[in-house]
Simulated assay, not measured.
Amino acid sequence: MTLSSPSRDVSGLRDYAFDWALVDVETSGVIARRDRVLSVAVVTIGPDGKQTGEFSTLLNPGCDPGPVHVHGLTAERLLGAPTFEQVAGRIGALLQDRVMVAHNAQFDYDFLANEFARARLYLPVSQRLCTLALNRQVDPPAADMKLGTLAAHYGVPQTRAHDAATARAELVARSVAAGLNVMSSVSRHTSALVTNEAGSTSTKARRAAGGGRGRTGDRRAHVPAAAE
């Protein structure tokens, strides 16, 4: 899931000056104690409303992925992805000392709590904000309380619903399958640069743009950590 919104002045909202962790999970079912998390995305926001970090990954649940027609996460896509236990520490660090925010937050919280328990860890969340419950209280003039409907009401463009981003491991696998040699740096031989920002102005992006397509027959791709 990718959400973006225009910049807003939040300097006067001192009652809401918390550190936030926006969470989205895709799961193999709806029963947290039985089903598994297939993908997770966390975006952290500071008290000033500015993004401070993000992390997203596919996960190998070790079981049938369930309703593929909903989330599009086939067993083949999840093959080679890390297990939840392998990324639990990183997710926990993003949630620590932050208010967890999700639409129907109880659902996401229950699934994360069960995954952390399986990893013999605790979910470091003491406060959470449910945007579904919040909107039921403010009762906006929207057709329903679905996330897509509310996003449209508040003017927030929403793309790739039911998708917590593409994992770097999958991008590497796709590149190799396409006959590319995945490199760890950009050089004059680089023929493709993968980034999570189409308009990136990073040093690597500028070098790739200025270096042309590379030599004929030398197909190399650089998949940076930013693609994670």
Rank of each mutant, 00 (worst) to 15 (best):
L147H: 01
P124C: 00
M183T: 15
P6C: 02
T44A: 11
V125E: 13
A221E: 14
L73Q: 13
V42D: 13
T216F: 08
A151N: 10
S187E: 01
A119V: 01
S7W: 02
S202V: 03
A75S: 15
H162Y: 03
R8F: 01
L73V: 07
A205C: 01
E54R: 15
G53T: 07
Q106M: 13
S56F: 12
T201D: 15
E115S: 06
E228F: 00
G29S: 13
V101L: 10
L78K: 02
S187M: 01
R219E: 08
L123W: 11
T74Q: 10
E54T: 10
V172N: 05
L58R: 05
V30K: 14
A165S: 13
Y16L: 15
H162R: 06
D19Y: 05
S5T: 07
L134D: 12
L180R: 06
A205K: 00
L193H: 05
A226E: 13
G89N: 00
G211L: 05
G212T: 02
V23L: 08
F55G: 01
R118Q: 11
G211I: 01
P47Q: 12
S5C: 10
N196H: 06
G66E: 09
Y16V: 05
G49E: 08
G66F: 02
V176E: 15
Y109G: 04
A198C: 03
A205Y: 02
A152E: 15
L129C: 13
A21I: 10
R14Y: 07
F107V: 03
R118D: 14
V186I: 11
H71M: 04
M145S: 11
L59I: 04
V156Y: 06
A208N: 07
H222V: 02
A143G: 06
A205R: 08
A152V: 09
G92D: 08
P124I: 02
T159R: 13
L147K: 01
E85C: 01
R136I: 03
S11Q: 00
A225Q: 06
R160S: 09
R219C: 03
A93E: 14
G214E: 12
P124M: 04
A105K: 05
L150T: 05
Q51V: 15
S200E: 12
M100L: 15
K146Y: 05
A173R: 15
G211N: 15
A17M: 06
P224E: 00
V156P: 09
K204P: 00
R36T: 07
A167H: 10
K146V: 03
S126H: 13
I45G: 12
L193G: 02
R174K: 12
L38T: 04
V156N: 08
R14D: 12
S185V: 01
S28I: 04
G62D: 06
V194C: 00
S5Y: 13
L59E: 13
P141F: 03
D108C: 05
A119R: 07
L58P: 06
K204E: 15
S56E: 13
D139T: 06
D15M: 00
A142C: 10
S56V: 07
A209M: 09
